[in-house]
Simulated assay, not measured.
Amino acid sequence: MLIAYAIGARGPEVLPTLGPDGVERVPPEARWIDLYIPTAEEEALAQAFLGAEIPSREESQEIEFSSRFYAEDGAVFMTASVLAGIDLGSPVLTPFIFAVSGERIVTLRYDDMRAFRSFLARAKPSNGCEDASGVFLGLIEAFVDRTADVIEHVSGEVDRLNREVFVARRDARRRGRRLSALIGDIGTHGDLASKARESLASIERLVQFANTMLKGIYGKGAAGNRMKLALRDVRSLEDHVNFVLSKINFLLDATLGLISTEQNEVIGVLTVAATVVLPPTLIGTIYGMNFDDMPELHWTFGYPLALLAMAISALLPYLFFKRRGWL
């Protein structure tokens, strides 16, 4: 899908791209083209509009710096990894490509992004969206704001998990099952926080590259101040998400440690029970052999004495373990 926008005093405005003959074309007053899973024909229109070749999806997913940030044919290409699919419960990092040539800008994306929709909803002149630099910086700010919201959500969930992990031990059996279930929640939020950190790192590289390559356009006046503020916000969020990730790692270690402790307690109880029962079992086994030369078998009080010996042999280890605090 190709959407062409004019950028002026009223902010971005959608332009018709279908001519009277039904052929899709880019209007001459267009200043911004947004490509969403484009066809080959739409890519060709965008390339003619920009005057440079648009990178393919495979090229945009490469991790080399030179593949994500470069200048070619008078255009500057920048790719950021942006969070998508969070509302659907399947967060992914998807490439978002900026291609800037003078006052013309092309954006290329392959997933629907909440941050992009939020930007379009508030893209007004009062928010600085009066030219290509306003669109570029507005999108960067929208991605940073969305990532900040995700980190705030993860931070709140980590606090909740922290309370659940360290609750009072009322029901050991139910708590053990709950701790096992919490490991999955901790892993899910840890994965989301890791993706947020990776996205912030890519946005930071993009802003730094844009500040170098587009300084003549976006590095002056209000645009330059917005660029510096966006970079400062990204770095502060990186510090925060690193703190959240350290808390998640601590929670994971603590949860595994508590599960191991409870398993050890169960094994300890079983060990004590086996130790308590072992002496009576030994006595009963001895007197169950029925040899002819066993005078105790003919005693009148042999049976109750054997029971008493078994009871005492079981009681003594129990009292010993109780005194040592092992029960």
Rank of each mutant, 00 (worst) to 15 (best):
V269W: 01
K247F: 08
V276I: 14
D233Y: 05
A230R: 02
L200S: 00
N211M: 00
N290D: 03
L192H: 01
G221L: 06
L179H: 14
V207D: 01
A201T: 09
A254N: 08
L252A: 11
L179R: 13
N264E: 06
D233W: 00
L251A: 09
P295E: 03
G302C: 02
I283R: 03
S180F: 15
L297R: 01
V234R: 02
M227P: 12
E204I: 06
D191T: 07
V244A: 10
S236K: 05
G224Y: 08
T275V: 11
R197L: 11
D191A: 06
L237F: 10
N290E: 05
R175N: 15
A222V: 15
T300V: 10
L192D: 04
G268S: 11
T212F: 08
V241N: 04
I267S: 08
F209S: 00
A210V: 03
L245P: 10
D239C: 02
E198F: 10
F301D: 04
K195S: 01
G221W: 02
R169W: 10
T285I: 09
I286M: 08
L231M: 13
I267D: 08
M289V: 12
F291L: 11
S260A: 10
A230G: 07
E296G: 05
A222S: 13
V244F: 07
G302K: 00
S260K: 04
E262G: 11
A223S: 14
F250L: 11
S194M: 12
H298W: 00
F301T: 04
G257T: 13
A168Y: 12
F291K: 01
M227H: 09
P295M: 03
N290G: 11
D293Q: 09
T255S: 10
I186A: 05
T275P: 04
A193W: 04
L179N: 15
L192F: 09
F243E: 03
F209W: 06
A273T: 13
G176F: 15
M213C: 02
R197P: 07
N211D: 05
E204V: 05
L192N: 00
D191Y: 09
I186R: 03
A172V: 15
K247T: 11
I283W: 04
L237I: 10
S260H: 12
R226F: 13
R235P: 10
L282A: 05
V269A: 12
R174K: 15
D185M: 04
W299H: 03
I267V: 14
Y287G: 02
L252T: 07
K215N: 07
W299Q: 10
